[in-house]
Design a binder for these strands. Structure first.
Lengths: 213, 213
DNA sequence: TGATCGTGTGTGACTTTATCACTGAACTAT
DNA sequence: ATAGTTCAGTGATAAAGTCACACACGATCA
């Protein structure tokens, strides 16, 4: 029995009807849920796990746009579902999990019948828009060293992160060399310890702590 | 009698009801429709003119996120309307025009009653999301000289553009000095002629013409 | 008809980031 | 152990961002 905040708020009758037509899919870490150009079959609701959405530019470079986790709705799919256009980005599973697929017909019906469902969808859209606006500002105006430190902090203020420099470069939308150099500098400052495919955070001092003091 | 594609497709009955509660506002060039932090009173539908939406980062720098023109819906307002949060960006009128303001109650009713209206709203969201995704890619991976040339081309492939370097910098999300230098370089290449507050395009050769040949 | 002031533009010096080209180190599979 | 693959480090150079300041243009006012 799939649980998702946007389904749980539905009135009993509608929820039951919807449940019957919803398929739950499991996805292993690393699986590509959809890639650029593909067409959308239904609206995925993330029940468990985490998925990153990234796009690759004409330049061939990629950047991570946002992540989806439990109780998220795949906002991108809504647009593709309603307009029939293909995806512009791709979604890759980071942490294995499962999603409920809402077929087009059920989606239309829920949008029509349930103000709660509509609100959920609109909120999801609003959040994505916000995320992207913030990302634009981040990419356009923030220094790479600060962005890298923030990323590391957000991921784990202490402990070991398993990621390659290349993947980290995609997270930040920069080049692998840049990440390597910045990390080396952090290592010289004793803030991290580096090894192949791993970054150990040892003494990252969040600069905002100093500034905000 | 206001005309807007999302209203014109409504069934007669609903359209009439809506029209009664909609206020049409005129706005002069330069007017700020809303700014960051403000709360939203209703959903603006652009009937005429053009509006640019820009945000200012913590750094103090600004960047233009997208533009709205005839038949556009102010997507940002939807989110603010439904969640009650304040705007994160600001909207400035570029070309004087007018907008129809849909009050919250009418918006809710239209969303509830009209699949056509819903589709229009969702399409609008989808387009914005696409715009922003493209912008992220553009900002993260494209060279400034190319972006500048593209911007000039898109604006007017020939003729005089009235804009300051500072404003152009905000369009591209960069610094004024960078724009000044790139423009000077274009002037040396006889592609533009510069004067205070004006850029005359003389012989801009779109590189895509050459590449695509 | 200058003098003055606000705004826009030009530019040097320097830092940060991106790109290119390559080396070597670390894991994997045989 | 060896060969192949993926990751990481680094020098050289170009592009872009930052800082500081000079100057140019146009409006206004005495």
């Amino acid at each position: 029995m799939p649980h998702h905040s946007i389904l749980d708020i539905l009135p009993e009758q509608l929820r039951k009807e919807a449940m019957e037509k919803i398929q739950v899919m499991r996805f292993p870490s690393g699986q590509v849920l959809f890639s650029a150009g593909e067409h959308c079959q239904g609206l995925p609701l993330v029940l468990k796990g985490s998925v990153k959405v990234q796009m690759t530019g004409v330049s061939g470079h990629s950047i991570v746009l946002y992540r989806m986790g439990k109780d998220d709705v795949c906002t991108l799919s809504i647009g593709c579902l309603m307009t029939g256009r293909g995806y512009r980005a791709e979604a890759v599973v980071e942490e294995e999990g499962e999603a409920a697929m809402i077929p087009r017909g059920v989606f239309d019906r829920l949008m029509d019948q349930s103000p709660e469902f509509r609100l959920g969808i609109m909120e999801s859209y609003g959040r994505r828009l916000d995320d992207l606006m913030l990302l634009v500002e981040e990419v356009a105006f923030h220094r790479m060293d600060e962005r890298l430190e923030e990323w590391l902090q957000a991921r784990a203020s202490r402990g070991v992160i398993t990621i390659t420099h290349q993947e980290l470069a995609v997270e930040l939308g920069t080049a692998r060399e840049v990440v390597s150099r910045l990390l080396k500098e952090l290592e010289r400052q004793k803030m991290v310890r580096l090894s192949r495919g791993k970054i150990e955070l040892t003494g990252l001092l969040d600069s905002s702590v100093l500034v905000g003091a």
